[in-house]
Design a protein around this nucleic acid. Sequence first.
DNA 1: ACAAATGGATAGCGGAACTATCCACTGACC
DNA 2: GGTCAGTGGATAGTTCCGCTATCCATTTGT
Lengths: 217, 217
Amino acid sequence: MKVSELSAESGVSVATIKFYLREGLLHAGLQTAANQADYDGGHVRRLRLIRALIDVGELPIAAVRATLTAVDDESTSLHDAFGAVMHGLDTVPPDDTAPDIAAARREVDAWLRRRRWKIEPDAPAPHALATAVAILRQFDFPVTLADFDEAAASAERSAEFEVAYARGMADRAAAVETMLIGTVVFERALAEIRRLALEAVSARTERRHGSGPRRPV
Amino acid sequence: MKVSELSAESGVSVATIKFYLREGLLHAGLQTAANQADYDGGHVRRLRLIRALIDVGELPIAAVRATLTAVDDESTSLHDAFGAVMHGLDTVPPDDTAPDIAAARREVDAWLRRRRWKIEPDAPAPHALATAVAILRQFDFPVTLADFDEAAASAERSAEFEVAYARGMADRAAAVETMLIGTVVFERALAEIRRLALEAVSARTERRHGSGPRRPV
DNA sequence: ACAAATGGATAGCGGAACTATCCACTGACC
DNA sequence: GGTCAGTGGATAGTTCCGCTATCCATTTGT
């Protein structure tokens, strides 16, 4: 398979494929001559993975590279490869540690201990969660970490399913890839479902409260 | 309050405040002289809202403007104002309607009808969900819309709570603002919890499967 | 024999979100 | 009342990102 065919197969332009090759996201094809190389199904699949991470996961190129490097390194554990996507998904803020975020962060850490969730200390997710809580409070939402207990239990159940599914794969590469896609794409799907639910409920109650342009409730 | 004070209060630089004023995200202060204006708590609050939409919701400036315009327009219903954020959250893809996405889209629409969720026909969420499903299938996940039933039911319950909470606010402006923050920030918080759950479960099973760098399962 | 395509290198582009500079002016302190 | 940092307003510049476009020497298929 040559570039033009790879491009047709994957829907990614030749120029962009070249760019990904340069950036080290896609491994070079098998060289058959000074200016000829041969690509295979692995390249198609890899391109699909790259596009999924970029389009659905909205990872920046650098994070995609870091993730794929971990994926390709056989000595990286499934768990660590997976950690790489996590870091890519959450853009780590520079240092904005406002006092109320710090307070929320301590609550988050206590909550994680209570749940017996062992999280890498410099993972971005706890900080992001603390930030979200702090912002909700700024806007007068009376929110506690306990309010997330149900969501956490449900997330844990589905995480167990997903991880078991990935670990059941034939080989490590497939397991890591499955984990990546599962993380990124399921997250997106669930977010969309939440949005749909909000829109549906909002529409329903709008009708109940009277149709047409509304005045204050 | 003058710019420098507003800047200190909100943590947004003067240059950026000027930029937001120019872009129409922030309404001008009360003019007291040719080159003097007075800002108040409303401006601080608005800046916080803008930053939340940009930082947490990752909305582009244009979407923030569209949203805030709907918020400020008294004749826009709560539901419609809320629809504006939805459109901003999902970056609408140009036209990439691959055949497998179209098929998934039909399933999504049927699923929505089954749930009796009335969704605006050109809302981006159903398309995004269909895309996610199509991608999962490309990677051999045997996924059905029915697999999302539980998540949907749970999303609906929390949406009902959120909408009721917002509709209970004293005035329309507060209700819309609450809805916005709730949508964007809760979504983020739930996503982070999902990531934490995955990391915790992954770490736990990693240990069970043996520590240190892993070979194929 | 020769047009089309390839790999490799380098330069350019367009959008987004700020940031910096300049200016004429003013309000607040000395 | 002088002065000077700060202000609003306008305009231009910067940085980053994710591609695109162009060039070129080689090679391939016909």
